[in-house]
Design a protein around this nucleic acid. Structure first.
Lengths: 221, 221
DNA sequence: TTTATTTTGTTGCCTTGGCAACTAAATTCT
DNA sequence: AGAATTTAGTTGCCAAGGCAACAAAATAAA
């Protein structure tokens, strides 16, 4: 594994609260493997057997929930330093619930689950910190799904949008939010019709609730 | 902690793949505390600071997502041996995203997060197994939310119901499923109107898709 | 820069299913 | 067992928003 990849990976949440020395020892132990993907290539298919935890080092990938009908629902964007596959670390089946594909050219690193488990004897305390980080990351992901459900359960489209923006603003902390995807994808994310979303955003602007400037939205509520 | 409580707790997923001896040592170390709740009492409020992992030993509790408007959305039922609060083990804030209340009289046991972390030195290998179990449980919970989203993203009520029943049947394994709650609550769970649900179930029965017998539903698809 | 592709706004029509209101049936409580 | 409460079925009305189709604007590719 090349040095600059090591350096990038260093700042992944996975290695938080781990010293530089421990980090070096750890990645030797974990022996991560680098892979490159061209835009639109598939990193992972639904139902694939997953034996690796992945970290996006460069580019952005997207995770989709596949539908029987062939349609897809965006679950999350994976910008650099995102972790994926970690929820499967401990499940019996290790089957991916999502399809992940490269939204741009992507560089990703993979760590075998086995390695994660088998290193305990060697470095118990670091291992513990590492597992704790994995736990934290999974917890965060869980809360993201939770936020999603908080949005989806709203009955009206406006309430969905409001809830989404509120969550995006860190529960009211920021006055301006930047939507991390296009309006087309946002509609998809909110499980709404794109034209309906377009209409409603306009209405909300008329009602003085928000000001839409491309992907930036000023909140006035 | 009384013996029969120990015995019940023994079969919680949390202690899977841990020997009887290890189990005994473990719970001494974890020093769990028992609490009793009368029906409708609150175990946990949204935004509560959570420092304990809980296990339901007897009775059933329910986790709800609170809404600004005061309405609630059922997230999950917690029958005996369910774990709760475990997702927060590693998050910074330890704030509960849900309100949990006793659907019947409930006996529950609590384990401090601290204990979970601080036992490593004493029993590394058991600790590892235990953390792995926590990881697995969180993973499972994650997938439950996932299933929920798979249901919610369906556009038509019928599709929602179908997806729900399919998931409930173990992806087609069982021909008969038992809905774990009343139709009223089911409507709530599907984020649909109760009367609409009633109508649609009847229609589906007319179309020969299902046979509804109280809470048991035969699947013919 | 020119072309191709994707994103966005906008309109009208029409279906899904939310809502209220009431009755009946089924549980639970005492 | 009888009363009280909760759950379930049924109806008609109506609004939210899905869908299709098109044009314009903006991005990306060549």
């Amino acid at each position: 594994m090349e040095l600059h990849h090591r350096a990038i990976m260093r700042s992944a949440k996975l290695f938080q609260d781990i010293s530089d020395e421990e980090y070096e020892a750890l990645i030797n132990c974990l022996s991560p493997r680098i892979k490159h993907y061209a835009k639109n290539e598939i990193l992972l298919l639904t139902e694939d057997s997953v034996q690796h935890l992945g970290i996006v080092l460069a580019g952005t990938a997207s995770a989709y929930l596949d539908h029987v009908s062939g349609s897809q629902t965006l679950i999350s964007n994976l910008p650099p330093l995102s972790i994926f596959g970690e929820v499967l670390v401990s499940t019996r089946m290790h089957r991916s619930p999502v399809t992940i594909h490269a939204a741009s050219d992507v560089t990703s690193v993979f760590i075998e689950y086995k390695r994660i488990y088998s290193m305990c004897e060697v470095a118990c305390s670091v291992h513990r910190m590492f597992l704790q980080n994995v736990l934290k990351i999974i917890g965060d992901k869980y809360f993201h799904l939770f936020d999603r459900i908080a949005v989806l359960r709203e009955k009206t489209l406006r309430a969905k949008i409001m809830t989404y923006l509120y969550t995006l603003s860190g529960n009211g902390d920021a006055k301006t939010v930047t939507i991390p995807f296009s309006k087309t994808v946002l509609a998809d994310y909110l499980l709404a019709n794109r034209s309906a979303l377009s209409k409603e955003l306009k209405k909300m602007e008329d009602d003085g609730l928000i000001v839409v400037k491309k992907r930036k939205i000023e909140l006035a509520f």
